[in-house]
Design a binder for these strands. Sequence first.
DNA 1: CACGAGACCTGTTCGC
DNA 2: TGCGAACAGGTCTCGT
Length: 278
Amino acid sequence: MPELPEVETIASILCQGSPEQPALPGRHILGADLLWKRTLAEPAPGEFKSRLLGQVIETIGRRGKFLYFQLTRGWLLFHLRMSGDLLVRPRGTPFATHDRLVLQLDGDIQLAFNDARKFGRVWLVEEVDEVVGNLGPEPLDEGLTADDFFIHLHTTRRQLKPLLLDQTFLAGLGNIYTDEALNLAKLHPLTPANSLTQDQAVHLLEGIRTVLGDGIARNGASIDWVYRGGEFQNYFRVYQRTGEPCPECGTPIVRITVGQRGTHFCPQCQPAYIPNGG
DNA sequence: CACGAGACCTGTTCGC
DNA sequence: TGCGAACAGGTCTCGT
């Protein structure tokens, strides 16, 4: 499920609290129930528990699509993959159907990692870079300039769609926001990265920042039964709108498969790249 | 290096 | 109605 805006929304709620739930920083971890063993990437379950219990959650944040909790000693990281979610509930609430890991915290609350498809993973490590060390730059980081981005694009001839999904190239984009960003930038998803002009690179970075910013402003997207809250799904321009008119020109949106991922674009606004053809 | 297929999983929706 | 196929917000590994 979650891409950068959804993870950012969850991180912000866990960190600051909301009218419905208290903030987590400052709380002690009193207990841990691991209900699906493979959810824990590392360390082994016994060591996980002995190292985790008694620690305090100091800060909560996001890097790419990872959520991180800085603890008294070390870091607890979550990746929600396709269907993960983090839910705060009153202590003693019975386990829900797809709960994979439930942490008991002081203040009579529990934090549940719920994940229908079991793709999500949890790490407890000494250094945060053991998990997020090879991620690419944050797209919303102002330190990433259009010039940097242009140069970065020209290091490869890979197609834009799979390249933007590559977290070592840029951290945080997933299938939805990539399709939306390419549409805003009027770029075909199969365009070779090193064929972009400086102007096109500027528009692509702007498109990425616009869709991510809009997604965050609307608290992310809620596509199916998994995620609740956001409403960005009501503002998709091309994603899962196959056959519907392009909001720009009215041409029906087309769906193709790229790297085994559904890919949606407007064939009029985003014409295929033609070598030597301009 | 770049790409495609398969694996990991469950649940919903689509097509016959 | 029923049933299998296709599809879903992600990433890793392997083979070519």
